[in-house]
């Protein structure tokens, strides 16, 4: 069974923010909520690298573990989704998430954050696929349409890959082979733990 993952190839990412606006556009995410963001380290000096980050759909998802209402669920493809009808906006998932993925529409006093919103891997939510209700709460369900995440599809340099982890690992390994460097895969160890199958994961350090 396919296991959905993201890879961001820092050797390619040029911090163009297409992934960020693609997501906003596709899901009509409001101002202030960013399901995806691009972080640059060593900005402006040699060694500058950018990485696009959103929910990584972790194998052993910390958000899921700490949610007091247990509103997360995981599809058999490993996509971590949540139910906004249940969410109480406590922010615990945000504290737990290694990647800062969970977002809140408000940051008002008295803990009034509103319902948590995060990257859905473009897979919508618990409502019927493609329904208006699903779109309003979670955005489009591209997965049900047979499409991959909008952010990865539109990435300007194909730095950001989203899809079946095995295929991604293959592609990535091939890239590393061709260019002879940049084997570090950011975020994989944190998100997916140790490689499930040895050949299926790119050689990686770097978190």
């Amino acid at each position: 069974m396919a296991r959905m993952k993201f890879i961001c190839d820092a050797e390619r990412c040029i911090e163009c923010n297409a992934c960020v606006t693609a997501c906003k556009n596709e899901h009509e995410v409001p101002w202030g909520v960013n399901r995806r963001r691009v972080v640059t380290i060593n900005d402006g000096v040699p060694g500058e690298r950018s990485i696009s980050v959103a929910c990584m759909h972790c194998s052993d998802a910390p958000c899921m573990a700490v949610c007091p209402v247990d509103c997360f669920y995981k599809t058999t493809e490993g996509i971590v989704l949540h139910d906004k009808d249940l969410c109480i906006g406590c922010g615990y998932c945000f504290y737990a998430c290694p990647f800062g993925a969970p977002q809140f529409p408000q940051d008002g006093g008295f803990g009034l954050r509103g319902k948590m919103d995060k990257c859905t891997f473009c897979a919508g939510g618990p409502e019927p696929d493609g329904s208006e209700a699903e779109f309003k709460k979670y955005g489009r369900n591209r997965i049900a349409e047979g499409k991959l995440p909008a952010c990865a599809e539109m990435c300007s340099t194909k730095a950001l890959l989203g899809g079946d982890g095995d295929v991604l690992a293959d592609i990535y390994r091939q890239r590393v082979l061709v260019r002879g460097k940049g084997a570090e895969v950011w975020g994989w160890a944190t998100a997916y733990g140790r490689p499930e199958q040895k050949q299926a994961a790119p050689a990686g350090k770097g978190g």
Binding site: V38, I41, D43, G100
Partner: peptide, 10 residues
Amino acid sequence: GITQIRGVET
């Protein structure tokens, strides 16, 4: 790091 996204510890 640096990011264009505003917010807490982005």
